[in-house]
Amino acid sequence: MTKRILIVDDVEFILDFEAKAIESVKNDAGFSIVVDKASTVTDAKELVEANHYDLIISDMNLPDGTGTEIAKFALDKDESTRIAALTIYPQRYESERGYFDAFFKKPILPSVFKENIKLLLKA
């Protein structure tokens, strides 16, 4: 079984960090994981259009829009996709919480992030 995850962030080192953390989850998850990366809302939408994602983890504050736009777009296409938001200020997006399965508070620590990924992929 293969799970496909999309990670969206405009900060390169965070994108790299998330990819590495997911990679290390893969080692003890018992299934293979494919990770795609995007840095903008536009790129993310293109990838969502072209692929089925089990999980999308998106930064909320992107150069050309917000993570909520990606969430709406992905849910319109496939309601089964799990979506997590990554933000420093979760309280700012309280009204948009309904579009997300989880809010991860930034900055992220590997141990906490990995645990959250496992939970979302299981659910």
Partner: peptide
Amino acid sequence: SGFMEDLEFFIESY
């Protein structure tokens, strides 16, 4: 408590 796990992650992944 999570520090060792985090450190291990960095040593391996990076």
